[in-house]
Design a protein around this nucleic acid. Structure first.
Lengths: 186, 186
DNA sequence: TAGATCATGTAATTTGTTACATGATTCG
DNA sequence: CGAATCATGTAACAAATTACATGATCTA
């Protein structure tokens, strides 16, 4: 009864993605989360260091200690071969409607790293899947609104509309993004 | 050394908001989360029942047991006076840029309940604060993109653009929403 | 040399997830 | 009657937050 490897958390996957090129230390990674204004993860040491440890324990990253002398030195982490594979399979995850309904858009984060790791063809495939999920989701949201938001107060209806518009805007973006990739191919 | 009351979690606040009118049971609340396709909270019993217990322990909700005979009966929860006050101060929280950067848009959830609890004037005030926070955030995102996304791969730049567009769309929505409230006043 | 920031970590607490347990009620 | 679903809960575990601790290095 060896427990099957649980899927990586969003934070863990993001760490893998950030380590894909250069070795970074826990502190470096914390700085990225602290300074990057988009797709926020916790920059608290209590989140980042244990997450790195978990990745290390799974053999997805390895520490190359620079100054092993004093005990506590700056430790840069690199992706192992298994780590690279794990990153790739995370990036290959199809976008699900569930994921969209959840709020935090990890799908977009995956897309951000897709080109470098999997190439442009994978980007276009991703966008097609994203668009399909978005269409389904928008349709079901509109259905819900029609059925349940008849007598709701204005602020409630407006808030819902705002959400739906957000998804529609993303759908629009998907289509434009595909076009951009096709233009670049030429 | 009485610990100061920690702020309510998003789930706890959402529960208060849902209980604002009619008494609902834990199961009712779970159904809402399971069936409502927008602003997702966990419908798992391990999340909802303990959260209700915490609210009860704080004196924000009270259980009115319908069938106290057998031991386990359906328990409807109602807001207490303190609970109503807690709900109101949650709804009055100003939108912060931090909150926007975080992804999950609880601000929008607050807005959805604002009209019923605080009235239309409060809705307009909320929208003005929301718009101000959005403007600041969009500006800082654009700054970041200009400074850090020059040589980035296309998929990275596109993902970032998608995010920025989303916030801009919300800003647009804010302005239209204010107009809607002004039209209704007449 | 004193204070800030770099850099790593741990401990306590809280929260959420998953899975299970329990019993009542409804419906074919 | 038996299965589904209503309805409430607990237990084990995983993860994040906050706060604290530690020491090195840089800089005014």
């Amino acid at each position: 009864m060896v427990k099957p490897p649980s899927p990586l958390s969003a934070l863990e996957s993001a760490l893998l993605a950030l380590l894909r090129q250069a070795p970074l230390s826990g502190y470096d990674l914390r700085r990225v989360f602290a300074d990057t204004p988009f797709v926020h993860f916790s920059d608290s040491p209590g989140a980042v260091y244990p997450a790195l440890r978990r990745l290390e324990a799974r053999g997805l990253v390895a520490a190359e200690r620079r100054r092993p002398e004093g005990g506590r030195g700056r430790r840069g982490f690199v992706l192992t071969a298994r780590g690279r594979r794990a990153l790739e399979s995370w990036l290959r995850l199809p976008v699900t409607v569930d994921e969209l309904a959840q709020g935090r858009d990890v799908a977009l984060l995956r897309f951000a790293f897709t080109e470098e790791v999997l190439g442009r063809a994978a980007c276009v495939r991703f966008l097609e899947g994203y668009a399909a999920a978005l269409e389904t989701h928008v349709t079901s949201l509109e259905d819900y609104a029609r059925r349940n938001l008849e007598g709701a107060p204005l602020s409630g209806r407006l808030a819902f509309e705002c959400g739906v518009e957000g998804f529609r805007a993303r759908l629009d973006w998907c289509r434009r993004a595909v076009t951009r990739f096709e233009q670049e191919k030429k």
